[in-house]
Every structure is written in structure tokens, then in C-alpha cells.
Design a protein around this nucleic acid. Structure first.
Lengths: 205, 205
DNA sequence: TGTACATCAGTGAACGCGCGTTCACTGATGTAC
DNA sequence: TGTACATCAGTGAACGCGCGTTCACTGATGTAC
């Protein structure tokens, strides 16, 4: 790492990284602009060269999170094509893997209280992530007889809600409760039962 | 309402109520001890006659929430006996109804970052709530052939995760996104598909 | 019923703290000639 | 290659604020006799 002098060189990203580390360590509440600056080796005032303020910094952290998230989902989806079933299952697993691997981003995105409409870029990238999941669900629905086919957006919402619930309740140790099962197993089995309920997995498998 | 003088009469509960209103209005971050005191018409210092501090106040709000929550779940369960299926579905609906009706409590319980192990009372009442759900799931499992029967605690965890996910993502307007469906419909249909996947509802119903 | 007194729930002033944000500034960088 | 100068990323001091918490106090309540 090159010794830095008066100019930082890459302060903007360093601040985002510091913010992510702080959010991960202390929750969205514990994060402060001043401490992020300090951790980046810089005066709090320097932050304002790069961000409009505290919220704007969190929003950028969230935006980067959505970007990674959308990529990860897209990759999982693509990789398991052309099987619609495998692709949907894979996006579920990818959701959990993302939450595990990028906890700071996850918290910034879903628990920091920042609105997805904070900026057009944020709205766009979150829509992209949602789009992947909905496409997977839509494709899957085509294998269900039209009569008993729930709307694809509903299927997507179910999977998403289950994934998010597993993350919040069992993948973090927040409620103090010990998880009865590994979150991955919980999510995978839950999605399995759900897909069986849709008639997409034979009942005896 | 009787005019009050120097003594408040029921300050402890008034503080809890004020805290709940603030939490509901501004999120767990926005809540401050000072403002809760002010809203109860009292000096911040007065709070310390009744609570050890800020966190203790939140914990009491959460405790009362768990108390109501456990009652509501229990009631839903009892009311739909002896049908194990109806009882489980009812607890799912009760979960959502609780989140809707007592948002301040819900946030204090699940989003305030307060640990369920803050106090023995809190741990006890949260265990009671969990117990209702697990009993319902256990009873239901008995209708599943043993070979393909998932552990009851897992079924309970699935339902809980789905419920919680629906609340967090779609019952609050937090992520800025519009819910594509009413949360109640989303949860009900999700549980329906899930139970069908367990083989507890005939596939053609 | 009336007085003395213990109990206790509130006051109000004060504390130290860290926050987000502003401002005039200065040091480093890079470009024009 | 060397100098002059514009640009811009940082400093550091200061601000007003509201926070949670403490303390010695005082006013109200209720009980004993």
C-alpha cells in the first residue's frame, strides 16, 4: 500500500468501505459519519467533498450492495439455465449467500431505513435485482397448469419473503435465539416444500 | 382523565406508551428517552424512578409486545382446534395481524436490536410465543407420513420466516417499494402453497 | 379527626459527550506556456 | 525543463444541538398514633 500524504487518492471508496465495516460491526444505529471518516484516516469535514451528508453515504453503500446483489442473483440464475426450477432454487440460495457474505451491504440495504427511492440509481439497481427474481418465477410458472397458477410476481414475493425471513430471524444472531437449523438448510427445505406445493416437484421426491 | 399534579399516578406505563408511539413514528433509531419523557409530561430524570435506562425502557416495551403476541397466537391456536391445519393457518394470520395492529411493539421486539436475553422475563415470554407456534406445527406433523415428515420445529421456523419476511418486506412501506399484493393475501397464499407441499392439503383444492 | 413524620415520585440544573455540518484556510497536483 | 497558476482535496477549529445520566432538592401522599 503506497504511503499517502495530504491527498488520499481514493477517499470516496475508502469511506464507503469504512461505513460498511461500521454498519456490520455496530448496526445501522451505531454508524456515524465522524467515525467512518476517522477510520478512513481523515477529518469528518473531508467527507463532504464526496457525499452530501451522512444519509448519502449510507445510500451509496446500499447502492453498491444492490449492484453486487443483482449480479449475484443474475449469475445464479444464468448458471442454472435452462432449468427453470434449478434457476429459481439457485436465486434463493444466492440470496442467503449474499446476506452472509456481505452483511454490511445487506444491513445498509434492508435495515438502515434508507428508502430505495433515495436516488434514481438506487431505484434502478434495486429494480434490476427484483427483475431477476421475477423473471425466474415467471419462467417457472409456465410449467404450472394455467388454472392453478399463481401470478409469477406472487411466487417471487413468496420466495423473497421466505429468504428474507430466514436471514433476519436465523442467519443473524440478533434475537438472541439460537437457530435450530443452519439457515441454508432451513431455506432450502422451505423452498423445496413450497415448490412441491406448486406441483413443480413430484410429491414423492 | 383526572387532572394530575405533582405525581403522575401511572408514569411507568405512560412512558412505555410514549416509547411505543415514538418507535412507531420514527423507528427504533428515532426513539429517545428524553422525548418519551417529554411526551409523558415529565422530566427525563423522572424516567430513572421506573427504569434503569433507555434500553430497559425499550425492553419493557418489547416484553409487553411479546405478552400480547403470545396471547394472540395462543388465542388463534385455541380457537381453531381441534383442526391442526386450521390452527396453524390461524397462527400465521395472527402473526400478521399482530404486526399490523401493534407496529410499535413489533419494532421494539424485532427491529430495535434488543436481545431476547435482556431479562429472564423477556426470554420467558418470547419462549412462550415460540412454544405456541411449535406446538401447532408438531400437531400438524402428525398428519404427515413419518418418512417424509420434516421436524416440527423446522415447519414452525418456515412459517415464522415466511410471516416475518412478508411483514418486513411488504407490510411496511420501508423499502419504498409498493407491495404487489395485500400482505394478508400474500401470506395466506404462501402458507397455502407450503402446506400443499407438505401434503396436508389435497393438490386439487 | 388532627398532627408528625417517613416515604417516595417528581423537579431542575448541570455534566460531559459525540454528533453532523459550516467555514475560511492550506497543501498538493496537474496543466499551460 | 522550468515556472506560474488554477484546481481541488484535504485541514482544523468552531457551531449548536440533543443525548443519556447524575445529583441534591422538594412537593405530595399515606400511615401511625
Amino acid at each position: 500500500m503506497p504511503k499517502r500524504g495530504y491527498h488520499h487518492g481514493n477517499l470516496r471508496q475508502a469511506l464507503v468501505d469504512a461505513a460498511l465495516a461500521l454498519i456490520e460491526a455496530k448496526g445501522p444505529t451505531g454508524f456515524t459519519l465522524s467515525e467512518a471518516a476517522k477510520q478512513a484516516g481523515v477529518t469528518p469535514a473531508a467527507v463532504y467533498r464526496h457525499f452530501a451528508g451522512r444519509e448519502d453515504l449510507i445510500a451509496e453503500a446500499a447502492r453498491q450492495g444492490y449492484e453486487i446483489f443483482a449480479d449475484v442473483m443474475q449469475y445464479a440464475y444464468d448458471k442454472h439455465q435452462p432449468s427453470a426450477l434449478a434457476a429459481l432454487e439457485a436465486t434463493g440460495r444466492a440470496y442467503l449467500a449474499f446476506a452472509r457474505r456481505y452483511p454490511g451491504h445487506y444491513i445498509a440495504m434492508f435495515e438502515s431505513g434508507i428508502s430505495v427511492n433515495h436516488s434514481p440509481e438506487l431505484a434502478a439497481v434495486s429494480a434490476r435485482a427484483r427483475g431477476v427474481q421475477e423473471r425466474a418465477a415467471a419462467e417457472l410458472s409456465q410449467h404450472i397448469p394455467p388454472g392453478k397458477r399463481p401470478p409469477p410476481t406472487m411466487v417471487s414475493a413468496h420466495i423473497w419473503a421466505l429468504s428474507h425471513g430466514v436471514v433476519e430471524l436465523f442467519a443473524r444472531n440478533s434475537p438472541g435465539t439460537q437457530s435450530p437449523f443452519p439457515p441454508e438448510a432451513l431455506l432450502e427445505s422451505g423452498i423445496g416444500v413450497y415448490l412441491r406445493g406448486l406441483g413443480l416437484i413430484p410429491p414423492d421426491s
